[in-house]
């Protein structure tokens, strides 16, 4: 979690605060995209905030995250500063990936955030490998791997859950089932649409979770992470969620009805938590207004940071293709007497 918490110490408040940060950040991103400040592909997480917030709440600072191209939310909640995320989307050298990644490739070594990956399913093997490294080095860490329902049609998914289960690796597979692989509905991609059931066939613990309920996600993630840390191998959560916006800024959203979207918006994860907190007298309208205002200030600062951030020098175009510490190393062939 990011250290900032403008609305007190209640755990519910922190969950709310993080979801609202993602929502407000992305709403501003839409405006900036229209203003052509942000270009390229941009995929919004609006509607799915409970998943990132609930999962990340269960992670420790030295755990790792492998994400997808829809990763603004994961990065923000993990603690990657909004300033460097925004600067990245502006393509500036001050961006977390020095302007070489953009919206889809947010990376942050300090927070063990191993990126946005634009290949569906492409991050899964990285998560397996990170977890393998932890296991081989005797570290009790969890690698959380986000991916969508679309990725479950990819071979890499099946290879990876099998490998993780076979080697009992500490991976938390977080499947964000938002019912569409870009524009293809779940039932048109998968013969068996019960994704948790399918994952369970690989002999790992898997169950479905209401991905619109941040408390349900946080509870499931905490349980899964605890079990993974205890050495019981990978876990799979199918987080049933919905994106309120189109797949990307290019998507005319022709494959689903407005009525369906409106129906899901009634289950908005932020509204739901606010209603619950109000009913329990945990938050007032004034508190909420203060929280919202603080978030707007944070985002304004991020935009101001990105606006004034310099561009990478074109002369540095080919930096980071190879490591700058790269030695021209040499191996020694011993004398024949020493050979086998």
């Amino acid at each position: 979690m990011a250290p900032k918490n403008s609305a007190g110490t209640s755990p519910h408040r922190e969950l709310l605060h993080q979801m609202l940060r993602i929502r407000r950040f992305e709403e501003r991103c839409v405006e900036l995209y229209s203003d052509e400040k942000i270009r390229g592909f941009m995929h919004l997480y609006i509607g799915e905030e409970a998943v990132a917030v609930g999962i990340c709440a269960a992670l420790a600072p030295d755990d790792a995250i492998v994400s997808t191209y829809r990763e603004h939310g994961h990065a923000l909640v993990r603690g990657v500063p909004a300033t460097v995320i925004m600067a990245e989307m502006y393509g500036r050298v001050a961006g977390c990936s020095r302007g070489r990644g953009g919206s889809m490739h947010i990376f942050d070594a300090e927070h063990r955030f191993y990126g946005g990956n634009a290949i569906v399913g492409g991050g899964l093997p990285l998560a397996v490998g990170l977890a393998l490294a932890d296991k081989m080095q005797g570290r009790s860490r969890v690698t959380a791997c986000f991916f969508g329902d679309g990725a479950m049609a990819e071979g890499e998914f099946h290879e990876c859950v099998n490998l993780a289960a076979l080697w009992r690796l500490p991976v938390l597979f977080a499947c964000e089932n938002n019912l569409y692989a870009m524009g293809t509905a779940l039932a048109k991609s998968h013969a068996e649409t019960d994704l948790a059931l399918r994952a369970a066939s690989y002999d790992l613990v898997a169950w479905p979770v209401d991905g619109m309920d941040v408390l349900a996600v946080a509870e499931a993630a905490a349980r899964a992470a605890e079990s993974i840390r205890a050495g019981s191998g990978p876990h799979f959560l199918e987080l049933r969620t919905y994106r309120f916006r189109a797949h990307s800024m290019y998507d005319p959203d022709r494959y689903r009805t407005k009525a369906e979207i409106e129906q899901w918006k009634k289950r908005d994860p932020i509204d739901s938590l606010v209603a619950r907190m109000k009913a329990a007298n945990e938050i007032s309208d004034d508190d909420l207004a203060v929280m919202d205002k603080d978030i707007c200030v944070e985002i304004d600062q991020a935009i101001a940071f990105a606006e004034q951030a310099p561009l990478e020098a074109t002369e540095d175009l080919t930096r980071f293709v190879y490591s700058e510490t790269s030695p021209t190393g040499a191996g020694h062939v011993k004398s024949a007497e020493a050979a086998p």
Partner: peptide
Amino acid sequence: PGRVRDTPLSEAGFVGAGIGAALGGMRP
């Protein structure tokens, strides 16, 4: 078997796991 690891026939999986393990501090 910890350091000489037989893998399933999953080239994308185990090559990618090698990349991940390298990111995690190993030298696969």
